[in-house]
Computed example of a mutant assay.
Amino acid sequence: MSLKSTIEAEIKSAMLAKNQSRLLALRAIKSAILLEETSGTAHELTSDQEMKILMKAVKQRKDSAEMYVGNGRQELADKEFAEVAVIEEFLPKMLTEDELKARLQEIIAHVGASGPSDLGKVMGVATKELAGKAEGKAISAAVKQLLQ
């Protein structure tokens, strides 16, 4: 079952349960999927494209929540965090910090990186291999730390 059909089924159940916050998050996901489907030449999205859409949605909401907290608007930040929780249900399990570092050490050994000057080579491979399994900020921070 594709992500789009799963989201549509979840929207129906959220409507029946009258769960407005969940419904809002699910509709945002569906909107992003439809927008991506109609913007390109491909009509059917791959699972990688679907994961990128979900990761982008999570990142946008986390950034918004940080801004709201910084401006003293906790109620708006809570709303964003609730949407993040719903969206993360459809993402694969994220790597822990230890798992991420282990995978990155493998990538560093494979690429043959030796120092901070090889950051670009490692990041290119790491972001492709770990897409949907770790956030870009976490990957970047861990790579910088490992290459020191």
Results as ranks from 00 to 15, higher is better:
Lys101Tyr: 00
Gln49Glu: 15
Val122Met: 07
Val111Met: 11
Ala134Leu: 05
Val125Tyr: 06
Ala32Phe: 07
Ser39Pro: 12
Lys18Cys: 05
Ala141Met: 07
Ser21Phe: 08
Met55Ala: 15
Glu36Thr: 15
Asn19Thr: 01
Glu10Val: 06
Gly70Leu: 08
His43Thr: 15
Lys56Ile: 05
His43Phe: 08
Thr41Tyr: 01
Ala25Tyr: 10
Ala25Ser: 14
Glu135Lys: 12
Ser2Val: 00
Met15Leu: 13
Thr38Asn: 11
Leu119Trp: 02
Ala42Trp: 01
Met94Phe: 05
Arg22Ile: 03
Lys52Leu: 11
Asp63Met: 13
Ser140Met: 11
Thr6Val: 09
Ala57Asn: 14
Arg27His: 05
Pro92His: 08
Glu135Gly: 13
Ala14Lys: 00
Leu45Gln: 12
Asn71Ser: 15
Asp63Val: 10
Ala109Met: 08
Val125Trp: 06
Met94Pro: 05
Lys144Gly: 06
Leu104His: 04
Ala142Pro: 06
Lys56Ser: 15
Ala42Asn: 13
Leu23Pro: 05
Ala102Ser: 05
Leu146Phe: 02
Ser140Tyr: 09
Glu83Leu: 06
Gly132Ala: 10
Gly132Pro: 10
Gln145Tyr: 03
Met67Ala: 13
Asp48Leu: 02
Leu23Ile: 00
Glu89Thr: 14
Ala113Asn: 05
Pro116Trp: 01
Asn71Glu: 14
